[in-house]
């Protein structure tokens, strides 16, 4: 049996998506849905690191997305677009082609640092108490941006469309599709590498028995620090992507509802399963779109499906297993390094 090379397949899929968007085989609605799907994948896989693998109950994930969204938007608008906030762009707008992804990374970095807001309390408390801390962090972050009048306050911040169109002026390809896809692959890739290493296994050890972990030489505080920073940093990237796709960012979009959405995807997919998190993000986004004709009834059907699923598969779709554990035959088709 031939083993296909995962990176090659992934690149081909990305290329196919970009080509399909470029030549209009996918209409704008489908394109946007696909991009939201990718953002949901980043959201659920990154939260899965905390809620699934580390066994904490973090319910403020949207807060970190908010930080990433604002920071990357501010950076890219200030550098590459004329705006009412910062006036003339600091750099030539054509630089946006390189600068936009870097601004996303900057947003992720700042979000990672904001993650310390939760990481430090997690040294001393856990479980329900830490859940309150994460909730508080979410509210603090939202309030900060609501009250920052220089970037629009409660009215929100915009101008990212200009950055994206500046990129399109240089080369007319579906940039946002490209970068959303690339960052999604990046997220899953580094999470997979992290979680399969001896260092990353420490995260599971902290979940299953923190005292044993500490006694067995695992620096549990460092593990928590790394996990929270990684998770919130990736959430920040997801936020930045969302802001650039929408062209508009508003603090109230990153409230507890958004955090809940991420949590639903983690628990639906199965705690601690990376493929489960990806699968459930696809499923939730897909369901949301497929059931759109139902109108308001959609919000009866989807939660009902959730209730039924939890009734019959209380551990989520995948439990804590990966796709390759459930279907070992899949291993014959690929080799992951």
């Amino acid at each position: 049996m031939q083993r296909y090379n995962v990176p090659v397949l992934v690149c081909l899929a990305g290329l196919a998506l970009c080509l399909a968007s470029q030549y209009g085989w996918l209409d704008l609605y489908v394109q946007t849905t696909i991009m939201f799907l990718f953002i949901n994948v980043i959201m659920s896989t990154s939260l899965n690191l905390i809620n699934g693998n580390m066994g904490e109950f973090a319910c403020g994930h949207a807060g970190f997305m908010c930080v990433g969204a604002y920071v990357s938007s501010i950076v890219s608008v200030a550098l590459f677009a004329k705006s009412s906030y910062f006036g003339e762009p600091l750099l030539d707008p054509s630089w946006a082609v390189v600068g936009m992804p870097l601004s996303l990374l900057a947003g992720g970095a700042v979000a990672a640092v904001t993650g310390l807001l939760v990481a430090f309390p997690s040294f001393r408390t856990r479980g329900d108490y830490l859940a309150i801390v994460t909730l508080a962090a979410n509210y603090i972050i939202m309030s900060v941006f609501v009250n920052l009048d220089t970037v629009g306050g409660p009215r929100g911040f915009m101008g990212m469309k200009k950055v994206v169109s500046a990129m399109n002026d240089v080369l007319d390809i579906p940039w946002m599709m490209l970068w959303t896809f690339a960052f999604t692959v990046f997220t899953v890739f580094i999470l997979r590498r992290f979680l399969w290493s001896s260092l990353g296994k420490g995260v599971m050890a902290v979940h299953q028995d923190e005292i044993a972990a500490e006694i067995m030489s695992v620096n549990t505080n460092r593990i928590k620090l790394v996990a929270f920073m990684l998770s919130s940093g990736l959430a920040g990237i997801a936020g930045g992507l969302l802001a650039h796709i929408m062209g508009y960012v508003n603090p109230s979009a990153f409230g507890i509802l958004k955090s809940t959405e991420a949590m639903v995807m983690v628990y639906l997919g199965g705690m601690g399963s990376l493929t489960g998190a990806v699968l459930s993000a696809v499923l939730m986004t897909g369901l949301g779109e497929v059931l759109r004709p139902l109108g308001i009834l959609k919000w009866v059907v989807i939660p009902l499906l959730l209730v039924l699923l939890m009734q019959f598969r209380p551990a989520g779709i995948m439990g804590n297993r990966e796709l390759a554990d459930v279907f070992p035959r899949l291993r014959r088709f690929y080799k992951f390094k």
């Binding site: 260092l199 420490g202 030489s217 695992v218």
Partner: peptide, 12 residues
């Protein structure tokens, strides 16, 4: 494997 954390010798 996890119990050998103290001599991992590599970073994140």
């Amino acid at each position: 494997r996890v119990a050998q954390y103290y001599r991992l010798g590599y970073g994140v």
